[in-house]
Design a protein around this nucleic acid. Sequence first.
DNA 1: CCCACCTCTTGACATTTGTCAAGCCTCTTT
DNA 2: AAAGAGGCTTGACAAATGTCAAGAGGTGGG
Lengths: 193, 193
Amino acid sequence: MYESLRAYIEKYASDTFSETDFEVVKKTFTHKRFKKGQFLLQEGDVCKYNAFILKGSMRLYSVDAKGIEHIIQFGIENWWVGDRESLTMLTPSKYNIDAIEDTEVLLITSEELQQLTATLPIFSKMIHTLNQRNFSASQKRIHDALSLTAEDRFLELQKNHPDFLQRFPQTMLASYLGITAETYSRIRKKALK
Amino acid sequence: MYESLRAYIEKYASDTFSETDFEVVKKTFTHKRFKKGQFLLQEGDVCKYNAFILKGSMRLYSVDAKGIEHIIQFGIENWWVGDRESLTMLTPSKYNIDAIEDTEVLLITSEELQQLTATLPIFSKMIHTLNQRNFSASQKRIHDALSLTAEDRFLELQKNHPDFLQRFPQTMLASYLGITAETYSRIRKKALK
DNA sequence: CCCACCTCTTGACATTTGTCAAGCCTCTTT
DNA sequence: AAAGAGGCTTGACAAATGTCAAGAGGTGGG
């Protein structure tokens, strides 16, 4: 069960675990199952956990004044989800996180994460790599959101995450791209010719 | 000259420098002046430096197929600019960075930064804080770009960075908001009533 | 001092995207 | 099998934003 986490950390740290170190990691994370629709975080609450997804998928989203959902991030197997601002500042979150499918995760609190980062070099290496990657990815997503048309954003999504198009309902994909479900449907039809 | 860097690091690390540590920092950074319009980074080159702005302002932007500039980030006094992806992966950058005004910066290479982070705890604390803040800020900017209308993005900018509205030409502000200069002019007129 | 250039504004029109309503299909529940 | 819910599509129209063109005003270099 922890093997995919192990592989993940070793991959992004470019390093391997000693058994004793990995035991520490196993003891720190808690395993939990979420039913489809179940919340890991609800707006207004303080985010308690970072979740590493073992199986299934989740989404991080806000709900605006009109009740419309805006998906900021999808998480699938081997992704992290959590509201980092709320986690570290202990402030009420503006976002929700729930399970799109039945989902299994490994949970870790902010303090535990800091603890592991401080004691295990392999862990802090991984964090460092993830920070770099996140920085680049965010920069690109900001650029795309501000510079590309809806159609071009769809094509980018298709190129970078073709699996998403199959896996998630179009209403959610539309929300992720910042467009309505109707526009998504029309753009998709046009683009898939 | 190095005092604002010192204050900045101490602020974000919530810690104070020993004189010997600060000597190391002073020796590591190089001071440089950029004339208005001069480039720190040009598309296709590998980004060599992170720049800490002492005085003046710079912008990070891409140029699309039609020749239109898309500003991803403004940098003013006490901000960092650099293309982190290019810096760490040593890949050619897709972005440009140039000086909007005559600008003074302190430069540091990626290796030097890594060196300082590894040897000075105060430095790594600062980096950690900046990563957190960047993560949150990026998340918000992505959310705003995908969920808000042009007018609401303008109002957000006005709220969060009122100084930008005075300091930068409207063409650049429009680009930063992902709209045309004409739309910016109209929205501004409407919003300032 | 004047010209050339740049920024900003405004108008008319085009294009993109959103809104609302209707209908279809599939799946689940009863 | 019937009923209902949810997701997807389509059409007609509305609203937001872009494009193109023209002109006003300011500014720096010659």
